[in-house]
Computed example of a mutant assay.
Amino acid sequence: MSANQTVYLVSGANRGIGLGLVTALASRPNTIVFAGARDPAAQSLKDLSAKHPNVHGVKLTMGDKAGNEAAVAEIKRIAGQLDVIIANAGISNYYGPLAETPISEFRDHWEINTLGNVILFQAAHALLLASPSKAPRFALISSGGASMGAYFHMSTVAYGSSKAAANFLVKVMDQEHPALISLAIHPGWVQTDMGNQGALANGLAEAPETLEDSVNGILARVDQATSKELSGKFWNFRVSHGGKPWNIATEEILW
């Protein structure tokens, strides 16, 4: 492979935002996309790979150190390089007040949403930093619900705190690896199974943002992140002026 070829790894790729990202990237020229999922043989990925030979399903379970290392070894074997990680996998399984949220929910959310990304980065960083592009990127799909400076209450304390902790990892990556462009991206409140579940828990019929708009906005941020000046920051998938409490009307989001 070479700097003219861009190799992506997208985690949580068998549904929702992850599948949307892989589908959009698959149509790009000179691109190889590794779709990381607990079940890389999921029908959604099999169908996509049949249509786009540049898509490769790879088994990737968040929090599984040996499995993450094996996935990265498979990427190196097939493509020889890794240029962009879009760390999308995550869970949001509980809605309720802090006083009633079971400790087990905190552990589950932090294990996947925070420690899962630590393990992914530790497994992949050597190959990622060796990217022939000289501008490797690690993009964390975060959440506006993790922002303390633009706080909006959604009764998701386990999820929000785990994503806020994951955001901190982005700052650490930026400081420790000058060659790496690291960024957190708020994807919007999206019409996926997870997003709609949260919408129902907060009195809405469905989440307000379409999957297509979210994917387009996320990839625009990832594509633009070729300068170190954009690294170590929390970006909005798009500026929202809808006047709703969950809208964030700035490109850069307060941590």
Rank of each mutant, 00 (worst) to 15 (best):
N4W: 04
Q5Y: 06
T6D: 07
L9F: 03
V10E: 07
G12K: 00
R15V: 05
R15P: 09
G16Y: 00
G18V: 08
L19Q: 09
L21D: 10
T23Y: 08
P29N: 10
F34A: 03
G36N: 11
A37K: 12
D39A: 03
L45R: 05
S49K: 15
A50S: 14
K51I: 06
H52L: 07
V55I: 13
K59P: 05
L60T: 00
L60V: 14
T61D: 09
T61I: 09
M62I: 06
M62W: 00
A70H: 05
V72T: 01
K76Q: 15
A79M: 06
G80Y: 10
I86W: 00
I86L: 04
N88C: 11
G90H: 14
N93F: 04
Y94W: 15
G96A: 02
L98S: 07
A99M: 13
E100W: 05
P102D: 00
H109G: 06
W110N: 03
E111V: 08
G116D: 01
N117M: 02
V118L: 15
A123M: 05
A126H: 13
L127A: 12
L129S: 13
S133C: 03
K134W: 04
F138N: 08
A139L: 07
A139E: 03
A139K: 02
L140K: 09
S142H: 09
S143F: 02
M148V: 14
G149F: 05
Y151C: 14
M154H: 08
T156D: 01
V157T: 01
Y159C: 00
G160C: 12
A164F: 11
A166M: 01
L169Q: 00
V170I: 15
E176H: 06
H177A: 14
P178C: 07
L180K: 01
A184E: 04
V190M: 02
M194I: 06
G195Q: 01
N196C: 12
N196M: 05
G198F: 12
L200T: 02
L200K: 14
N202P: 10
E206N: 03
P208Y: 04
D213W: 02
V215W: 11
V215D: 01
N216K: 15
A220G: 03
R221G: 07
D223Y: 07
A225E: 10
T226H: 07
K228D: 09
K228A: 15
K228Y: 12
G232Y: 08
K233F: 10
K233E: 12
K244T: 07
P245W: 08
W246F: 09
N247V: 04
N247L: 00
A249Y: 03
T250Y: 10
E251V: 13
